[in-house]
């Protein structure tokens, strides 16, 4: 880690001013990604602006039944907050299945939205990596890429997105609220996570100095029965091979009336399964239709010999999850 200067911001204005006024600076929240990557010399800001003191740890009701989550609320607190458990159990589960209790006590919700990939070629600080060093290439394309993405990839990057809770949030159509040097704005979550395309280094639309201050989760009645299931090699403390967030309502006729489906571990971004949703809504909730929907979602999957299993794995995981929710 290179020498850094440190500023502990006492207010949002101060924090935004400090970062936007310094070209080589970064916010420091829970630090669980930032400090790790600083030590690996993958990111190299020279000014760290500590935002842990900011009064952004709240959870409060919005609209009719939605929740606003302060950006500095810790994952462990959000996971166990009554209104999250009741209204979005799948989100609570996603939070609790992420990392470890120590990390969840540290990691903030805003920071989680900025979590970086675990791609070994990104993290090593040396290999060709378009995400770390634009234009240098992508060693993962032909490297060891078992954990890499099969959806949303490009010729320039196949790094998978590591977050669990972000999978829930894309399914819930959350909105990211920010304050930056140019004022406040709101960003729909699916516009927040940018697929790699030609610019893998640009992961979200935040301007320098723009701080996430809250995440709005709208009222989603169907999410009261939502679930998050995470499949991985070991039973705990591991990033997902494949994870599935689902919230589904089947009407009296046995047709899928509402469905929110999102996937982790398979996409370059937290993956909302729009195609599967479209394929199922209005159709009978049967295993055959679930399978067809899963096929549709992965129709454009791009795989390598090492991660091709994820397609089969994910399809089966989707079918199982929807079948269990139905039964």
């Amino acid at each position: 880690m290179r020498p850094v200067t440190f500023f502990r911001a006492g207010s949002i204005d101060e924090a935004v001013a400090a970062v936007s006024g310094h070209p080589d600076s970064a916010f420091l929240a829970g630090g669980t990604t930032e400090i790790d990557l600083l030590r690996l010399n993958v990111v190299q800001p020279t000014l760290l602006v500590d935002v842990n003191d900011l009064p952004l740890t709240y959870l409060e009701d919005i609209d009719d039944g939605g929740v606003r989550i302060g950006a500095m609320a810790r994952m462990s607190d959000v996971a166990r907050a009554q209104r999250i458990v009741e209204r979005y159990p799948g989100m609570s589960q996603a939070l609790l299945l992420g990392a470890s209790e120590q990390l969840r006590n540290m990691a903030s919700m805003g920071g989680n939205m900025c979590q970086r990939t675990r791609c070994a070629y990104f993290r090593d600080g040396q290999s060709p990596c378009n995400k770390r060093e634009p234009g240098s290439g992508c060693a993962a394309l032909t490297g060891v890429n078992r954990g890499h993405a099969v959806l949303g990839t490009s010729d320039h990057c196949i790094a998978s997105h590591p977050s669990d809770v972000a999978v829930a949030l894309v399914a819930l159509d959350a909105v990211i609220r920010t304050i930056g040097p140019d004022g406040t704005r709101t960003i729909p979550i699916e516009s927040f996570f940018l697929p790699p395309d030609d610019t893998p280094s640009v992961e979200h639309p935040l301007a320098h100095g723009e701080l996430i201050v809250a995440i709005d989760v709208p009222a989603v009645p169907v999410a009261r029965t939502s679930r998050y299931v995470k499949h991985r090699d070991r039973v705990s403390y591991e990033f997902a091979l494949v994870s599935v967030f689902s919230a589904m309502r089947v009407d009296d006729a046995g047709n899928v009336a509402e469905l929110r489906l999102a996937l982790g571990g398979v996409g370059t971004v937290p993956w909302r399964a729009h195609r599967a949703e479209e394929a199922l809504i209005g159709r009978p909730a049967t295993p055959e239709n679930f399978a067809a929907a899963a096929d549709a979602e992965f129709a454009d999957a791009r795989t390598t010999p090492m991660n091709a299993f994820k397609v089969t794995f994910a399809k089966r995981a989707i079918v199982r999850e929807l079948s269990e929710v139905t039964s």
Partner: peptide, 28 residues
């Protein structure tokens, strides 16, 4: 020193955290 093993677990204000990914100055 990467937040992957838990050997550095301490409590901050009574909650367990990883001291390897926490800057000392943030603990004031």
């Amino acid at each position: 020193d990467q937040g992957t093993c838990g050997a550095c677990t301490v409590w901050m204000d009574g909650r367990r955290v990883l001291s390897c990914l926490t800057l000392a100055m943030s603990c004031e």
